[in-house]
């Protein structure tokens, strides 16, 4: 595969990979390894688990590459796989139903004072304590800086539902950190 092809955009590399050029997929892995690993790390809060999730995600992408039909971008598709893998890991480790906290009585600013006093490690722990669906929306928005529409595609929900989950995540995060003062 000529070097100029490796500088091609994702859709070209995906087509090459679908045609059996494994070096094209290798390049896709190298290109996306940081956002995929970062997402896995922020979703799981653990480097070892993030490593496993990242590896599983790329293997799953390879296995189903022939089914990828560019209805979304390759990156969006990959994010969806990572989130699903992380969700499965979370479910297998915490066999309890995910309960979303109601937003009544939330006063932004009141509880969030504590956040400034927390180190990033504590913030990460608080994020991992969020219900998974809130956490996924928060991580994709805050750490990956994705637009609401793309997050909606990844999580198979509407942009309004993304907005709602982010709202609850902010509330829950403030509450968790604020409650420990």
């Amino acid at each position: 595969m000529p070097p100029e092809q490796l500088r091609a955009d994702d859709s070209v590399l995906v087509r090459w990979a679908q045609d059996g050029h494994s070096e094209a997929f290798e390049h896709l892995v190298r290109r996306h390894r940081v956002p995929v690993y970062r997402t896995a790390l922020r979703l799981t809060g653990d480097a070892h688990t993030a490593d496993d999730v990242t590896q599983d995600a790329f293997i799953a992408a390879w296995k189903s590459l022939q089914l990828f039909q560019a209805e979304s971008s390759f990156a969006t598709w990959l994010y969806r796989i990572v989130v699903n893998r992380a969700r499965n890991t979370y479910r297998s480790r915490r066999d309890v139903p995910v309960e979303e906290v109601p937003v009544d009585g939330y006063h932004p600013g009141a509880d969030t004072e504590a956040i400034a006093r927390e180190g990033t490690d504590r913030v990460m722990s608080a994020i991992v304590e969020l219900p998974f669906e809130q956490r996924a929306a928060f991580v994709l928005r805050l750490f990956e800086e994705l637009p609401y529409e793309e997050i909606a595609q990844i999580l198979s929900i509407t942009p309004d539902a993304v907005r709602g989950r982010l709202h609850r995540a902010r509330h829950q995060l403030a509450k968790t950190l604020g409650g420990e003062r």
């Binding site: 390894r33 940081v34 690993y37 956040i115 400034a116 180190g119 990033t120 504590r122 913030v123």
Partner: peptide, 21 residues
Amino acid sequence: SLWSPVHALAEEEVTPPSELV
């Protein structure tokens, strides 16, 4: 100011293990 630790975490560089690929 209050949410700065969250933003600091977002700015943190994340490097995957070198042998992952």
